[in-house]
Design a protein around this nucleic acid. Structure first.
Length: 98
DNA sequence: ATGTTGACACCGG
DNA sequence: TCCGGTGCCAACA
């Protein structure tokens, strides 16, 4: 498991998130077997062609610097917001197709 | 090798 | 619910 493959796994995982669903950084990290949620954010910050907006914080809050953009995109996909946070109980995706 | 930083997570008050 | 502190891992100077 090289660092490069980890990046691939992260991107694959994020790409696999269906519209209208979200995952937390920790979820993605755990999904690929990493214990570094920060690395997820770091990889996404590199700027890839992936739905990064479907990755939110543990409490459902959006990424600070991109809160506006992220919220817009999510709402555009039908994600419901409770104030400034995503309704994780409804939209959180475990990575399982069902 | 060491210290600092970061699109984070978790616990306690 | 909001805020502060701590733990964790990887990249960078």
């Amino acid at each position: 498991m090289t660092a490069e493959s980890v990046r691939e796994q992260i991107l694959l995982c994020v790409e696999s998130i269906p519209p209208g669903r979200v995952m937390t950084y920790g979820d993605v990290a755990e999904y690929i077997g990493s214990r570094a949620p920060r690395q997820v954010g770091r990889v996404l910050s590199e700027g890839h062609n992936v739905p990064w907006h479907r990755v939110v914080h543990f409490d459902g809050s959006c990424t600070a610097a991109l809160s506006v953009e992220q919220r817009q995109r999510l709402i555009s996909e039908g994600v419901r917001f409770l104030g400034e946070r995503v309704d994780l109980k409804t939209h959180r995706w475990d990575g399982q197709p069902g």
